[in-house]
């Protein structure tokens, strides 16, 4: 599905005559089947996606007695001394994570596709492997890797000047550490997806470029990258939404470092603190809505910038 999506859309769009010529009745019929196919997803989306969002929106403008408070909860969480730091933390983490994801995933996928063709099946599998672990267990592996005494890369950590786990998880290192964990657990599946997208680029386009004298680098920069644009945008949207909700990594590293990572490092953790330590679900909902607005805003920017939903040209 991944491999064929792009070319089909393009082929269909470049030959509008074929579409128009299709019998009208058949289109209606296939539409009905289409509804059936999306029904399952839509129902689940309404139940577990839209309804909770609506509930969070409602909670964020009311107080615990159910009275409307307007933006009171928002001004309250904005004034919280932790609000600035959590978004600074997550902002730095997201910048590092999205850049590394974009640059490294695309580079690795291009290399696998072009240069390492013979070994690429094995390498692809190896890249994907860490992602096959459940999220929490892959974080646990890193807890061992980050302890200079227990880690197989202990000598490297010591060479950098870190002799104890406490020094490794110092506050200034945390965004980079979480970025590395996230990259290790999440990038593999994106490499596989990008590889599939690269397969979707028609061979004749590459062939034509090659005949015109383009080298591997030129093909990558001028043909493959522009054609991957929508996939990269798609990856960025999902990675941003996922990254902004960072929770497991700081929570587990915090527990493992005996509380050295504060329990309110990321916005999601702060929201959790509001809900389950202060029993303030309205404040928690306000933070959730802020995250939602940010994610939607960035998603919209990526969608329009990359023309994700434009079908006419890519």
């Amino acid at each position: 599905m991944v491999a064929t999506g792009t070319p089909q859309a393009r082929v269909g769009a470049s030959r509008p005559g074929i579409r128009a010529a299709k019998p009208r009745g058949r289109r209606v019929g296939s539409g009905r089947v289409g509804y059936l196919f999306v029904a399952g997803y839509t129902i689940l989306l309404l139940l577990f996606g839209v309804a909770p969002v609506a509930y969070a929106l409602w909670l964020s403008v009311t107080n615990s007695s159910g009275q409307l408070v307007g933006l009171g909860n928002f001004t309250r969480v904005f004034a919280d001394y932790r609000f600035g730091p959590v978004f600074a933390h997550i902002g730095l983490y997201l910048v590092l994570w999205l850049i590394s994801l974009m640059v490294l995933v695309v580079t690795l996928a291009l290399m696998l596709h072009g240069r390492l063709k013979r070994t690429s099946a094995v390498v692809r599998f190896l890249c994907y492997l860490p992602g096959a672990f459940a999220g929490a267990s892959s974080v646990l592996i890193w807890l061992i890797l980050l302890d200079p005494v227990a880690s197989p890369i202990g000598p490297v950590l010591r060479a950098v000047g870190w002799s104890s786990a406490a020094q490794v998880v110092a506050p200034e290192n945390l965004p980079v550490i979480f970025m590395i964990i996230a990259f290790w657990t999440g990038a593999g599946s994106w490499i596989v997806i990008m590889y599939g997208a690269l397969n979707g680029i028609p061979h004749e386009v590459i062939e034509a470029a090659r005949i015109d004298g383009a080298g591997a680098l030129q093909i990558a920069l001028r043909i493959q990258l522009p054609m991957l644009r929508k996939w990269i945008a798609y990856m960025l949207i999902l990675a941003f939404a996922g990254g902004a909700q960072l929770f497991v990594e700081p929570q587990l590293v915090g527990t493992a470092s005996f509380g050295q990572v504060p329990d309110d490092w990321s916005p999601n953790q702060l929201s959790y603190q509001y809900a389950f330590v202060a029993a303030d679900f309205n404040g928690a909902a306000a933070i959730a809505v802020v995250l939602l607005v940010l994610s939607l805003g960035c998603a919209a920017a990526a969608v329009f910038k990359a023309g994700l939903f434009e079908r006419g040209h890519s």
Binding site: T62, N63, S65, L68, V69, G70, L71, G72
Partner: peptide, 11 residues
């Protein structure tokens, strides 16, 4: 909602 918002948000 802003106009009707007269209740206190403080938990």
């Amino acid at each position: 909602s802003l106009i009707t918002a007269c209740a206190d948000a403080d938990p």
